Structures are given as C-alpha cells and as structure tokens.
Simulated scan of single mutants.
Amino acid sequence: MSTYAILGCGSVGYAVAEELVAEDKNVFILDVDEGRVEALRDQDLDARHANISEESVAEAVADRDVILILSSDVDANAAAVEHIRALGDDQFVIARASDPVSADELTELGADVVINPSAVIADSALRALETGELEYKARQLGEVIDRTEHRMAVRVHRSPDPDSIASAAALQAIAQSRDVEADIVYDGEIGHQENRAFVNLLGIELVSRDGIDLSEYDTIALLDHAKSGEPEAEQTADIIVDHYEHEHEHDVEFADIRPSVSATSTILTKYIQELDLGLDQGVATALLYGIRAETLDFKRDTTPADLTAAAYLYPFA
C-alpha cells in the first residue's frame, strides 16, 4: 500500500489528509505552524513541525511513495520540490501552485502533477453551473412536451444524416416516455445508402413531409436543422435543438443551441441522462453513431462533451 506525506497542512492539505485517513492510508504531515501541528496530533494524526523549504525535509519524507506539497507559500513549495528531486525521481510529487507562472516553475523543478486550487474551485463552480442549467433546461423541455394535446412532429433537416436522425429518435423516445406520440418528419430523400441502412437496421420510422399535414401536429420540434438549406424564417417551431447557430431568431418556447459541441446527438444524450430515461439499444446505438459520424470517429472537432456522451452510450449500444 502506498504511503503519503503532506507538506503544508492548511485548509487544502487538511482536506486531503482527511480523505486519505478516511481511506485508511498511511499519512505523515509536516507543517511550519506549531499550533497547527499540535491540533493535528490531538486528532491522532502523525504530524511534525518543520519548515518545508529546508533540505532536511526531503530526507524526512524519503521513505514515502507520494508527496503532496500543499502549503500556500509557493516559494516554499518550489524549494521542497527541488530538494526532493535532488534525492531522486522515485517518488510521485504533487505540488500546489498559485498561478500559471508558478505552475510552470513547479513543473520544471520536477513536480509530476501541479494543482492550482483557484482553478480547481473555478472548474468545480462551472461544472455545478452546467449541471444546474441542464436540470433547468430538461425541466423546460419536459414542460413543452407535456403541453402536447395530440401529437408532436420532430422535423429533421432535408435529406437527414445520422446525427439528425439519431437526435430525432432520442427526442421521440423522450416524448413517448411522457405519453406523447411523436413522428420523425423529413423532407427530400434519405439519399446515401449508408444512411438508409442506418435507418433500416435500427428500425427507425420516418415520415415524409409530402405525406402529412403539419397543421395536424400541435407541437413541432426542429432538430439539427440549421444546415438544412431551407429558409429558416419560414420554419415555425415550439422546440429547437441544434449544434449550429441559426441565422434567424425564432420565437419558440424552448431552444437549446450549442455550437460548443460537435453533434446534436450529444445534446440529446445529455437530456436522456438528466431525465434518467431508460435507453433501448436502438436509440443508444443511433446516438453513438450520430456522434461518431459528426466527429469522424472522434478525429474532427471533438469536445469533452462529445466524449462523455459517447462513453455513457457505449454500454447500451
């Protein structure tokens, strides 16, 4: 089992120590504040007083596998990294920086991993914001679908590609989970042989625009529609979901347009997750293929959101 040393046990170091001790890890703590050391000892932690910038500290932790240098004094952290690396490269060293400049310095001195608490907090806040926004948007989407009295039309762009078809199948599944019947409506033809095989193999039913009267649908969704080549200003809708910006403003009840992702299938996958919807194999396979097609098997403009969506879908596909 790995052994750990924490150099500098302020708020960050103490939080890490608590987690490691809770996992029954062997933790040794060094800190320059004698009062803090006494308080740590009162909690039955193995803590000793030391100035972590001194050379002797490297020898004091030489028997530890992992060194976490977490004091708020970046100069002391840099000195600790330098002294530890002077004894060898066997230990895994994590060091705390305060900004990109100090992060580069610590990396050059030999730290294996450099963390910036401010950046970590900001990243955590942004993730919380993203989660909160998705929860809010999912609730909005559900409310619009629930107001459907008769039937919903999910319109995809002309001669739809796998991303368009897959995202439509996902929205159809969301609607059906709320007891709302939905048709996937397309214009033109499903021209490419590969796209026809995609639809046939997965059993996705599409309805040609030529054979229906859109006025019979009381809810209309436009999915992956910005690149349709049709005049957007003439399109009416209640729901718009797309990964391309639209040239015209739409007065709709619900819109989620995210140029920050590479596939509309990615957006719909996030809603599937948020709504905790059971995925059947066909829809999961379609969404995964839609993401792969838009990103050229993750080789073109792939974002972290595309990758996490694909990872979620893979076990179901």
Rank of each mutant, 00 (worst) to 15 (best):
H225K: 02
H225G: 07
Q193W: 09
A166P: 03
I204P: 05
I190Y: 10
Q193T: 15
E189W: 14
R196F: 05
L206F: 02
G191I: 15
V199R: 08
D210F: 06
E181C: 04
E205L: 04
S208A: 14
R178E: 10
A170D: 01
A175R: 00
S215G: 14
Q172D: 10
R178T: 05
V207N: 07
Q193N: 14
V180Q: 03
L214K: 06
S215W: 13
G211V: 10
V199S: 04
S164T: 12
D210K: 11
D213M: 03
V207G: 03
I204Q: 07
I220E: 11
S208E: 14
D163R: 03
Q193V: 14
V207W: 03
E194P: 02
V185D: 01
G191K: 15
L214I: 13
D183F: 00
D210W: 03
E181W: 05
V185M: 01
A170W: 00
I190L: 10
D224V: 02
N200F: 03
I212G: 05
A168E: 07
N195A: 13
D187P: 05
G203N: 01
D179C: 07
Q172P: 08
D210Q: 09
V199K: 02
S167W: 01
Q176N: 13
E216C: 02
D210S: 11
D213R: 04
I165L: 11
V185K: 00
L201Y: 14
A221L: 03
A169S: 15
L206Q: 04
Y186A: 06
E181S: 13
L214F: 12
S215I: 10
G203P: 01
I212P: 02
A168Q: 03
I184S: 05
I190E: 12
A169M: 06
R196Q: 15
A166G: 08
V207D: 08
L202T: 07
H225D: 12
I220S: 11
F198V: 11
